[in-house]
Design a protein around this nucleic acid. Structure first.
Lengths: 111, 111
DNA sequence: AGCTACATATAGAAAGCCTACATATAGAAG
DNA sequence: CTTCTATATGTAGGCTTTCTATATGTAGCT
């Protein structure tokens, strides 16, 4: 998977993975791997700054916890973040529709 | 359409639009608008540098022409570019499949 | 003369994702 | 005990690509 392709879609992925339950960064990375069937290996240097950015914007809130002697910062969706996720989903549908229509135009014309 | 979302997909769009016939930059921009139903308004400052980059890589070749007193640089797909377009298409399918699987995971679980 | 459409191009800004590195605990293996 | 792996968070700097803004010039219409 070309890493550049993720640009502009990282937010949607992170918000989506937090929809059901709050998770900490490391668990988010694992969840992305699982749900993508191993295709998404997002590095920590991408996830942690992105989570902080989303919290700064107000889509996420976080709190520290200690589990098994290790410190975790657990992120959860805010109401604002939940709304944003709706927007990300519809933006994704439009995006795939638009790009897809251009990419498929010639393929169908040629058989 | 969030402009950042196009990142990493511009090449696929440009190669795809040139699949059927050679076109010059301005016509490519118009073709992208038409095929996307007006959703894609790619600025000249994006298209012209991108075309040069694709030519430098070897996916496109270009030649100058004068039509109606105006100079045009017409781009056409090379064999290498045609192969690359195949790769871009399969990469696109994988990309939408992977992101889609993550985005839809919660939606279906929640109804 | 001025406006719009056609046509190409560059410089610099903006953004975000990645690589590489730094730090630290827990537990298993040897 | 030491080493290695898994768990866990974080920053600095680099890199690529897209966008904004600007420049240039022709053709045709009013």
């Amino acid at each position: 998977m070309n890493p550049d392709a993720l640009r502009g879609h990282m937010d949607a992925l992170l918000l989506s993975v937090l929809e059901r339950e709050p998770l900490h960064g490391y668990a988010i990375i694992e969840a992305l791997q699982e749900r993508s069937g191993g295709a998404l290996n997002v590095p920590t240097g991408t996830v942690y700054p992105a989570l902080r950015r989303l919290e700064r914007i107000g889509y996420l809130s976080s709190e520290w916890a200690t589990v098994g002697g290790r410190k975790r910062r657990t992120y959860r969706l805010t109401d604002s973040g939940r709304k944003q996720l709706q927007g990300e989903r519809s933006a994704w549908r439009e995006f795939t529709s638009v790009i897809g229509s251009v990419l498929r135009a010639e393929a169908s014309a040629l058989g």
